[in-house]
Nucleic acid binder design. Structure first.
Lengths: 144, 144
DNA sequence: TACTATATAAGATTTATTCCTATATGATGT
DNA sequence: ACATCATATAGGAATAAATCTTATATAGTA
């Protein structure tokens, strides 16, 4: 057991998740990219070590790790894109399981000033606050 | 020309977009839902009036209207989901065309307090600021 | 009214994700 | 160490979402 796999195991255990070699490899693969990999790129990376791993395992594991905050995500994919007729300033509460979206308003969020260094070479269309998590209905559904 | 189609036409013209009956119908369909419809639901709605409209037209038109800020979106879909190994507090700059994601940090965004009324019945996994727009590379690519 | 760049329809194709079912395995108690 | 069993996995099929291709049509403009 290398230092790195040991650390991955620890993280999984801390979150009450079973430790499997696949999960350890997936977690290390995500961490290995300094970027924002998609599931397939994680799959290809892990495949080198586990040629028989299935895509389903990768997808399931990534979702699980996201919900346990072991990793993050950027909310692309996973469902059809959702449009929004509301052009007034507002923000979103998003359930990661059922994808329900609730709007909320908060004046103090309406003029967030992004550091100008970040905005070089970029034309913003909008700046919003995303609260991502699990709605109570989904939480309850799992308990049942 | 009803009042509503007139308003939709005006909005399109203001943004320098050609006015076609399909675009007017799509814009009205999005506005008609008080919700966050996906492209297929817009397609089904518009199909009632234009039984021969193609999905491609709906997808193209929605993206166009999003870039011109005629409507918004919630960044689901449109590509594969992207994961993020960085578990420190940070925020994202996202290109709506090429999906490149850049991280940025800003202390003042790290403790945003969402109004508690919005957070009833919801367990947040994370709260972040999204800056969505078009990166310069994509902007330039189009000019060429 | 004619022209031309742009938009559209139709359907095929590609890409992303999830589902299904049989098998395997990690964690737990003995 | 061993049996148990809830949970995880592989493999591949199925579904869903988005995009591409090509021929045709049309909005804006001269």
């Amino acid at each position: 057991m290398s230092k790195k796999t040991g650390r991955a195991e620890m993280i999984l255990r801390e979150q009450g998740a079973r430790v499997t070699p696949q999960r350890v490899a997936i977690l290390m693969a995500v961490a290995a990219t300094g970027d924002h990999p998609d599931a397939d790129s994680v799959y290809r990376h892990v495949s080198r070590e586990y040629p028989h791993i299935s895509r389903d395992t990768v997808y399931r594991t990534l979702s699980m790790m996201e919900e346990k905050k072991i990793i993050g995500s950027v909310l692309f994919g996973g469902a059809s894109k959702r449009y929004d007729p509301n052009t007034r300033k507002h923000h979103h509460l998003i359930c990661l399981r059922c994808r329900r979206i609730n709007d909320f308003s908060a004046k103090k969020f309406d003029r967030l000033e992004v550091p100008s260094s970040a905005m070089e070479r970029f034309t913003a269309v909008r700046t919003t606050v995303h609260v991502e998590g699990i709605c109570d209905e989904c939480q309850d559904r799992n308990r049942a």
